[in-house]
């Protein structure tokens, strides 16, 4: 499970307790399913304080952890494929090629 690749920046993610949905720790100290709401730590010291803050606010989430991201055109992008999939969802169409028959 390669989720701790090096990146220039870090965010904190977890899964929501009630339904498992992927959530991100936000600037306001809450959790959001929108990746764009994630607060980005731009140096190791900031990341070190970010994770304990997130854990302190994690009563309705499961196992928060840091994720390495890089800024692409100013926007954070997870470094690892695993985390890109968690952000973007399945990488294939669930429906088969003959989708009309796969109701």
């Amino acid at each position: 499970m390669a989720k701790n690749l090096r990146g220039t920046h870090q965010i904190v993610t977890a899964n929501r307790l009630s339904d498992g949905v992927v959530v991100f720790f936000t600037r306001s100290g809450d959790w959001s399913p929108d990746f764009n709401d994630a607060v980005v730590a731009d140096d190791p010291a900031a990341a070190e304080t970010l994770l304990p803050r997130a854990r302190g606010a994690a009563t309705a989430t499961v196992e928060p952890y840091l994720v390495a991201v890089e800024l692409v055109d100013g926007a954070p992008v997870p470094v690892s494929m695993r985390e890109r999939i968690r952000v973007g969802g399945l990488t294939f169409p669930v429906l088969a090629a003959g989708a009309s028959r796969y109701a």
């Binding site: 294939f92 088969a96 090629a97 003959g98 796969y102 109701a103």
Partner: peptide, 14 residues
């Protein structure tokens, strides 16, 4: 194993 489908998946309808 429908052509191009995820192996082992079946919809509720199927």
């Amino acid at each position: 194993k429908q052509l191009g489908a995820p192996p082992g998946d079946a919809s509720a309808t199927q």
